[in-house]
Protein backbone atom coordinates (compact mmCIF):
# COMPACT_ATOMS: atom_id res chain seq x y z
CA UNK A 1 0.00 0.00 0.00
CA UNK A 2 2.78 2.39 0.92
CA UNK A 3 6.49 2.11 0.18
CA UNK A 4 8.96 4.73 1.29
CA UNK A 5 12.62 4.39 0.37
CA UNK A 6 15.50 6.60 1.49
CA UNK A 7 13.27 9.64 2.04
CA UNK A 8 15.14 12.85 2.75
CA UNK A 9 13.98 16.36 3.56
CA UNK A 10 15.80 19.47 4.77
CA UNK A 11 14.47 22.81 5.92
CA UNK A 12 16.95 25.65 5.47
CA UNK A 13 19.98 23.41 5.83
CA UNK A 14 18.69 21.23 8.69
CA UNK A 15 17.91 17.69 7.67
CA UNK A 16 14.63 16.75 9.38
CA UNK A 17 14.13 13.42 7.57
CA UNK A 18 17.36 11.49 6.99
CA UNK A 19 16.94 8.51 4.73
CA UNK A 20 13.76 6.98 6.13
CA UNK A 21 12.58 3.68 4.59
CA UNK A 22 9.53 1.59 5.45
CA UNK A 23 6.73 -0.32 3.81
CA UNK A 24 3.15 -0.83 4.92
CA UNK A 25 1.19 -3.82 3.69
CA UNK A 26 -2.50 -3.77 2.80
CA UNK A 27 -4.72 -4.17 5.87
CA UNK A 28 -1.98 -3.23 8.29
CA UNK A 29 -2.18 -0.57 10.98
CA UNK A 30 1.23 1.05 11.11
CA UNK A 31 2.27 3.54 13.78
CA UNK A 32 4.90 6.25 13.43
CA UNK A 33 6.12 7.24 16.89
CA UNK A 34 8.67 9.80 17.90
CA UNK A 35 9.28 12.86 20.06
CA UNK A 36 8.35 16.32 18.80
CA UNK A 37 10.49 17.22 15.81
CA UNK A 38 11.31 13.59 15.00
CA UNK A 39 10.06 14.08 11.44
CA UNK A 40 6.77 12.16 11.63
CA UNK A 41 4.49 14.82 10.20
CA UNK A 42 7.02 15.75 7.52
CA UNK A 43 7.22 12.09 6.51
CA UNK A 44 3.41 11.90 6.25
CA UNK A 45 3.26 15.11 4.23
CA UNK A 46 5.88 13.77 1.83
CA UNK A 47 3.88 10.54 1.41
CA UNK A 48 0.85 12.58 0.37
CA UNK A 49 2.82 14.81 -1.99
CA UNK A 50 2.10 17.85 0.20
CA UNK A 51 5.74 18.49 0.94
CA UNK A 52 8.46 18.34 -1.67
CA UNK A 53 11.11 15.82 -0.60
CA UNK A 54 14.81 16.29 -1.33
CA UNK A 55 15.38 12.65 -2.21
CA UNK A 56 14.01 9.14 -2.07
CA UNK A 57 11.14 7.23 -3.58
CA UNK A 58 7.53 6.97 -2.46
CA UNK A 59 4.78 4.79 -3.81
CA UNK A 60 1.29 5.32 -2.41
CA UNK A 61 -1.64 3.07 -3.37
CA UNK A 62 0.42 1.83 -6.30
CA UNK A 63 1.24 5.30 -7.65
CA UNK A 64 4.52 7.22 -7.58
CA UNK A 65 4.52 10.31 -5.35
CA UNK A 66 4.91 13.19 -6.02
CA UNK A 67 4.64 12.54 -9.78
CA UNK A 68 1.10 11.14 -9.45
CA UNK A 69 0.34 12.54 -5.99
CA UNK A 70 -3.06 13.89 -6.95
CA UNK A 71 -4.24 10.54 -8.27
CA UNK A 72 -2.78 8.81 -5.21
CA UNK A 73 -4.65 11.18 -2.90
CA UNK A 74 -7.86 10.27 -4.71
CA UNK A 75 -7.43 6.76 -3.24
CA UNK A 76 -6.35 7.97 0.19
CA UNK A 77 -8.04 9.39 3.28
CA UNK A 78 -6.42 12.00 5.52
CA UNK A 79 -7.33 12.86 9.10
CA UNK A 80 -5.08 15.84 9.87
CA UNK A 81 -3.57 16.84 13.19
CA UNK A 82 -5.24 20.26 13.23
CA UNK A 83 -8.93 20.57 12.74
CA UNK A 84 -9.67 21.99 9.29
CA UNK A 85 -13.37 21.29 9.06
CA UNK A 86 -15.33 24.01 7.31
CA UNK A 87 -16.93 26.16 10.05
CA UNK A 88 -19.28 27.78 7.55
CA UNK A 89 -21.06 24.49 6.86
CA UNK A 90 -23.21 22.09 8.83
CA UNK A 91 -22.01 18.59 9.70
CA UNK A 92 -23.62 16.96 6.64
CA UNK A 93 -22.56 19.80 4.32
CA UNK A 94 -18.96 19.30 5.41
CA UNK A 95 -19.12 15.76 4.07
CA UNK A 96 -20.99 16.63 0.87
CA UNK A 97 -18.71 19.53 -0.05
CA UNK A 98 -15.62 17.46 0.70
CA UNK A 99 -16.93 14.70 -1.56
CA UNK A 100 -17.00 17.19 -4.43
CA UNK A 101 -13.27 17.71 -4.23
CA UNK A 102 -13.00 14.01 -5.09
CA UNK A 103 -15.43 14.44 -7.96
CA UNK A 104 -17.92 12.10 -6.28
CA UNK A 105 -21.34 12.40 -7.95
CA UNK A 106 -24.08 14.01 -5.86
CA UNK A 107 -26.28 10.88 -5.81
CA UNK A 108 -23.49 8.65 -4.59
CA UNK A 109 -22.64 11.19 -1.92
CA UNK A 110 -26.26 11.39 -0.80
CA UNK A 111 -26.12 7.63 -0.31
CA UNK A 112 -22.84 7.75 1.60
CA UNK A 113 -23.51 10.63 4.00
CA UNK A 114 -25.96 8.78 6.32
CA UNK A 115 -23.54 5.87 6.60
CA UNK A 116 -20.62 8.18 7.33
CA UNK A 117 -22.66 10.01 9.98
CA UNK A 118 -23.54 6.69 11.53
CA UNK A 119 -19.89 5.67 11.52
CA UNK A 120 -19.04 8.91 13.33
CA UNK A 121 -21.95 8.55 15.75
CA UNK A 122 -23.33 11.87 14.51
CA UNK A 123 -26.66 10.71 13.08
CA UNK A 124 -28.63 13.34 15.03
CA UNK A 125 -26.18 16.09 14.20
CA UNK A 126 -26.50 16.17 10.41
CA UNK A 127 -27.90 19.71 10.40
CA UNK A 128 -25.87 20.95 13.37
CA UNK A 129 -23.48 23.86 13.06
CA UNK A 130 -19.86 23.05 13.73
CA UNK A 131 -19.58 25.31 16.78
CA UNK A 132 -22.24 23.13 18.43
CA UNK A 133 -19.91 20.10 18.33
CA UNK A 134 -17.54 18.97 21.08
CA UNK A 135 -13.88 18.30 20.34
CA UNK A 136 -14.50 14.57 20.16
CA UNK A 137 -17.42 15.01 17.75
CA UNK A 138 -15.32 17.23 15.51
CA UNK A 139 -12.56 14.66 15.43
CA UNK A 140 -15.06 11.94 14.55
CA UNK A 141 -16.45 14.13 11.78
CA UNK A 142 -12.92 14.69 10.48
CA UNK A 143 -12.44 10.93 10.48
CA UNK A 144 -15.73 10.42 8.63
CA UNK A 145 -14.69 13.10 6.16
CA UNK A 146 -11.48 11.16 5.48
CA UNK A 147 -13.70 8.28 4.34
CA UNK A 148 -15.87 10.13 1.78
CA UNK A 149 -13.94 8.56 -1.10
CA UNK A 150 -14.04 5.07 0.46
CA UNK A 151 -10.23 4.96 0.66
CA UNK A 152 -8.20 1.80 1.10
CA UNK A 153 -5.48 3.64 2.96
CA UNK A 154 -5.96 6.29 5.63
CA UNK A 155 -3.40 8.64 7.18
CA UNK A 156 -4.09 9.81 10.73
CA UNK A 157 -1.88 12.47 12.26
CA UNK A 158 -2.28 12.35 16.06
CA UNK A 159 -5.96 11.39 15.88
CA UNK A 160 -6.67 11.59 19.62
CA UNK A 161 -4.47 14.48 20.78
CA UNK A 162 -6.49 16.79 23.02
CA UNK A 163 -9.42 14.42 23.55
CA UNK A 164 -10.78 13.18 26.87
CA UNK A 165 -10.59 9.42 27.67
CA UNK A 166 -14.17 8.71 26.59
CA UNK A 167 -13.64 10.43 23.25
CA UNK A 168 -10.31 8.63 22.76
CA UNK A 169 -11.87 5.25 23.37
CA UNK A 170 -14.57 6.00 20.85
CA UNK A 171 -12.00 6.99 18.23
CA UNK A 172 -9.98 3.82 18.95
CA UNK A 173 -13.11 1.78 18.49
CA UNK A 174 -13.75 3.44 15.09
CA UNK A 175 -10.15 2.90 14.02
CA UNK A 176 -10.33 -0.77 15.01
CA UNK A 177 -13.45 -1.18 12.92
CA UNK A 178 -11.60 0.35 9.96
CA UNK A 179 -8.74 -2.11 10.42
CA UNK A 180 -11.26 -4.94 10.76
CA UNK A 181 -12.78 -3.93 7.42
CA UNK A 182 -9.38 -4.50 5.80
CA UNK A 183 -8.26 -0.90 5.39
CA UNK A 184 -4.68 0.20 5.81
CA UNK A 185 -4.02 2.79 8.51
CA UNK A 186 -0.93 4.88 9.04
CA UNK A 187 -0.97 6.84 12.23
CA UNK A 188 1.32 9.09 14.19
CA UNK A 189 0.81 9.47 17.91
CA UNK A 190 2.45 10.54 21.14
CA UNK A 191 0.41 8.03 23.10
CA UNK A 192 2.25 4.75 23.42
CA UNK A 193 -0.79 2.97 24.83
CA UNK A 194 -2.68 4.05 21.72
CA UNK A 195 0.01 2.64 19.44
CA UNK A 196 0.23 -0.57 21.48
CA UNK A 197 -3.55 -1.03 21.25
CA UNK A 198 -4.06 -0.22 17.59
CA UNK A 199 -0.92 -0.90 15.61
CA UNK A 200 0.22 -4.18 14.12
CA UNK A 201 3.64 -2.64 13.74
CA UNK A 202 5.23 0.54 14.98
CA UNK A 203 8.30 2.48 13.93
CA UNK A 204 10.11 4.76 16.33
CA UNK A 205 11.61 7.85 14.73
CA UNK A 206 14.10 10.17 16.34
CA UNK A 207 15.91 13.17 14.86
CA UNK A 208 14.71 12.32 11.36
CA UNK A 209 15.81 8.68 11.38
CA UNK A 210 13.99 5.45 12.04
CA UNK A 211 15.62 3.76 15.03
CA UNK A 212 13.36 0.73 15.59
CA UNK A 213 10.52 -1.03 13.83
CA UNK A 214 8.52 -4.09 14.86
CA UNK A 215 5.27 -5.35 16.39
CA UNK A 216 4.74 -3.55 19.74
CA UNK A 217 4.98 -6.77 21.84
CA UNK A 218 8.10 -7.91 20.01
CA UNK A 219 9.70 -4.51 20.41
CA UNK A 220 9.01 -4.58 24.14
CA UNK A 221 10.30 -8.17 24.41
CA UNK A 222 13.47 -7.41 22.50
CA UNK A 223 14.32 -4.04 23.98
CA UNK A 224 13.37 -4.21 27.60
CA UNK A 225 13.02 -6.41 30.69
CA UNK A 226 9.43 -7.52 31.24
CA UNK A 227 8.89 -5.81 34.63
CA UNK A 228 9.30 -2.22 35.69
CA UNK A 229 9.28 -1.01 39.29
CA UNK A 230 9.07 2.75 39.76
CA UNK A 231 10.38 3.78 43.17
CA UNK A 232 10.16 7.22 44.77
CA UNK A 233 10.28 8.85 48.18
CA UNK A 234 12.82 9.82 50.87
CA UNK A 235 16.16 8.08 50.27
CA UNK A 236 15.46 6.91 46.75
CA UNK A 237 18.90 8.02 45.51
CA UNK A 238 20.76 5.85 48.01
CA UNK A 239 18.45 2.92 47.31
CA UNK A 240 18.93 3.26 43.56
CA UNK A 241 22.71 3.39 44.04
CA UNK A 242 23.25 0.72 46.69
CA UNK A 243 20.36 -1.73 46.71
CA UNK A 244 18.38 -1.74 43.48
CA UNK A 245 21.20 -2.85 41.13
CA UNK A 246 21.42 -6.12 43.04
CA UNK A 247 17.88 -7.11 41.99
CA UNK A 248 17.21 -5.16 38.77
CA UNK A 249 18.97 -5.63 35.44
CA UNK A 250 18.89 -1.88 34.79
CA UNK A 251 18.26 1.11 37.10
CA UNK A 252 17.65 4.63 35.88
CA UNK A 253 17.34 7.55 38.25
CA UNK A 254 15.42 10.50 36.83
CA UNK A 255 14.55 13.39 39.09
CA UNK A 256 12.99 11.84 42.18
CA UNK A 257 12.11 8.48 40.63
CA UNK A 258 14.16 5.33 40.13
CA UNK A 259 13.03 3.17 37.22
CA UNK A 260 14.12 -0.44 37.86
CA UNK A 261 13.87 -2.81 34.90
CA UNK A 262 13.79 -6.45 36.08
CA UNK A 263 13.34 -9.94 34.70
CA UNK A 264 11.65 -10.76 38.01
CA UNK A 265 10.27 -8.01 40.20
CA UNK A 266 9.63 -10.11 43.37
CA UNK A 267 13.10 -9.92 45.00
CA UNK A 268 13.27 -6.16 44.48
CA UNK A 269 9.81 -5.63 45.95
CA UNK A 270 10.80 -7.79 48.88
CA UNK A 271 13.91 -5.75 49.51
CA UNK A 272 11.71 -2.64 49.60
CA UNK A 273 10.00 -3.95 52.75
CA UNK A 274 12.96 -2.69 54.74
CA UNK A 275 12.60 0.86 53.37
CA UNK A 276 9.30 2.17 54.70
CA UNK A 277 9.91 5.71 53.38
CA UNK A 278 9.97 4.47 49.79
CA UNK A 279 6.90 3.93 47.68
CA UNK A 280 6.78 1.73 44.62
CA UNK A 281 4.70 1.07 41.55
CA UNK A 282 5.19 -2.33 39.96
CA UNK A 283 3.94 -2.84 36.42
CA UNK A 284 4.58 -4.68 33.17
CA UNK A 285 6.98 -3.09 30.71
CA UNK A 286 5.26 -1.22 27.92
CA UNK A 287 5.99 0.56 24.69
CA UNK A 288 6.63 3.81 26.51
CA UNK A 289 9.60 2.20 28.29
CA UNK A 290 11.01 1.16 24.94
CA UNK A 291 10.37 4.60 23.55
CA UNK A 292 12.13 6.32 26.47
CA UNK A 293 15.02 3.86 26.32
CA UNK A 294 15.55 4.52 22.63
CA UNK A 295 14.91 8.26 22.49
CA UNK A 296 16.12 9.31 25.94
CA UNK A 297 14.45 11.32 28.67
CA UNK A 298 15.43 14.78 27.49
CA UNK A 299 12.65 17.18 26.68
CA UNK A 300 12.42 18.01 22.95
CA UNK A 301 11.04 21.37 21.91
Amino acid sequence: MLQVAELRKSYSGTEVVRGVSFAVAAGECYGLLGPNGAGKTTTLRCCLGLTASDGGHISLAGLPVPAAARAARARTGVCPQFDNLDPDFTVAENLVVYGRYFGIPRDLMRERVPRLLEFAGLEDKAAARLDALSGGMKRRLTLARALVNDPQIIFLDEPTTGLDPQARHLIWDRLKSLTASGRTLILTTHFMDEAERLCHRVAIMDRGAMIAEDAPRRLIGAQIEPHVVEIYGEGVREFARDTAPRYAQRVELTGETAFCYCRDAAPLLESLQAHSALRALSRAANLEDVFIKLTGRDIRD
Binding site: L48, R70, R73, A74, F82, D83, N84, D86, F102, N149
Partner: peptide
Protein backbone atom coordinates in the same frame (compact mmCIF):
# COMPACT_ATOMS: atom_id res chain seq x y z
CA UNK B 1 -7.11 25.92 7.18
CA UNK B 2 -9.73 25.33 4.52
CA UNK B 3 -7.15 25.18 1.73
CA UNK B 4 -5.11 22.60 3.63
CA UNK B 5 -8.21 20.43 3.89
CA UNK B 6 -8.96 20.83 0.19
CA UNK B 7 -5.41 19.82 -0.69
CA UNK B 8 -5.76 16.59 1.26
CA UNK B 9 -8.27 15.69 -1.43
CA UNK B 10 -7.07 15.24 -5.04
Amino acid sequence: RTWEGIMHAP
